[in-house]
Each structure stands twice: as C-alpha cells, then as structure tokens.
C-alpha cells in the first residue's frame, strides 16, 4: 500500500469536480504564516504511519496570527517526530461549525469497489452511521445512501443538501472506479453554507 501525495490527490479530485479546501505544504513556520496571509488556518502533520491524525495529536486548528502559528508549527513538528517521515500541511479554515461527513471507497475481496457515505470527522467510529454501495453508483442510488443515514435530518436537512451530497457521491464513485486506487477517504468533508469542502484526503494506491 502506498499513500498518494496530498497534492496529487487534490489534483485528482479536482479533475472529477470535487471541491477541497485551499492547502499548501509549509516547510517552515514562516511558510505557514505567509500562507495564512492574515486568515485563520489549520496545521496538520501528514505521515503514512498515522491514520488518525486528530487522535494522534497531529492537527492544530483555528490558528490566528503570526505568533500563534509559529508556536503551533514548532509544537506540531516536535509531536510528529515519532511518525517520521512527515510533512506539515497548512489549510485555510473551512466552514466552521458545519456538519462533517465521510465519503470513501474500499475494495471488497468478493464484490470489488464499494463507496461509503457516513457521519464523519470524530464521529465516524463513535456512531458508525454509514451506508455502502457497490460501484458504480448513480444519482438515485446515491440519494438512497443519504436517506439511509440515521443522522440524515442533520446531515441533509433539505432537498438541496440531499442532491449536493448525492452528486458528490456520484463523483467519488466515478473517480474511484476509473483509477487504480485501493482505498479512499475524504474525511471529513465539511458541509457549510449550502456547499462543501473536503478538508482531508487519503488516497491509497
């Protein structure tokens, strides 16, 4: 298994019309500050050996101002040392307070490629609220995945949200079917203001 580089993955997503939050590698605290450009950012350490970034303490969110960013950068680099090799990714804050979902793909030994939609972020394992289908998934099937979630009233409170999430699933299904990828996580995808942003990508080839 090999983890696809974050920006390669991001470019792949873009080719399929899947939105992700603005990001850049920060080789230094200075890089991070320049990327922030006065706005609030998140710093994440990316390593092949850490699946749970937030559980492993590799995410520092809501960083505001040069001093805070510099301190966070150094602290993160220290924490990530045991997951070497790693890189630090700077991201703009996306849709604060938005609902977090997961959209992903997995290859089943019997039926082939599967697509998953679930309540995401830190709730993935706590609630295990998800639905699964075999690729390729069309619009109607994708909508039924949304409707199946126990948390659908929160995740997709109206018709527009259902359609938006269904469209995202269809694109992920297409991307996953077309490419040599064994596993795929967009987790979380943050839903906010009638749109969404994938804020973490994990593509395994």
């Amino acid at each position: 298994m090999s983890l696809m580089d974050y920006f390669k993955a991001e470019a792949l997503l873009r080719r399929y019309g899947i939105r992700s939050v603005r990001s850049a590698y920060a080789e230094s605290a200075h890089d991070a500050v320049r990327f922030a450009n006065g706005k609030r950012i998140v710093l994440k350490a990316i390593s092949r050996s850490a699946l749970h970034k937030s559980k492993s303490g590799l995410v520092m969110a809501d960083l505001d101002g040069e001093r805070e960013i510099r301190l966070a950068y150094d602290a993160l680099a220290k924490r990530a040392a045991r997951y070497r090799p790693f890189r630090i990714l700077a991201q703009r804050m996306a849709g604060e307070g938005g609902i977090e979902i997961i959209v992903g793909g997995k290859t089943d030994s019997q039926f082939g490629k599967l697509v998953l939609l679930g309540l995401g972020g830190v709730y993935v394992e706590a609630f295990r609220d998800f639905s699964v289908r075999v690729c390729p998934v069309g619009r109607a099937e994708a909508e039924s995945m949304v409707m199946e979630l126990r948390s659908r009233a929160v995740v997709a409170p109206n018709r527009r949200a259902v359609v938006m999430i269904a469209n995202l699933i269809v694109r992920v299904s297409r991307l996953y079917s077309d490419n040599k990828i064994s596993e795929l996580d967009l987790n979380p995808v943050i839903l906010h203001n009638g749109t969404y942003d994938a804020v973490d990508l994990r593509v395994i080839t």
Partner: peptide, 24 residues
C-alpha cells in the same frame, strides 16, 4: 479480517458489502 488503511475500510467489512449488494 482484512487490514484497513482507511476509515472507510475499517467501517465497510464483508458483512456490510453483502448488505450493500442485497439492498442495491
């Protein structure tokens, strides 16, 4: 029993795959 490198894989095991096929 399959090793998972992603959240998706850890959620969607063989049972979930069968359920997905039956439903779909």
């Amino acid at each position: 029993s399959e090793a998972a490198h992603s959240h998706t894989a850890s959620l969607a095991g063989s049972t979930q795959a069968y359920e997905a096929v039956f439903r779909q």
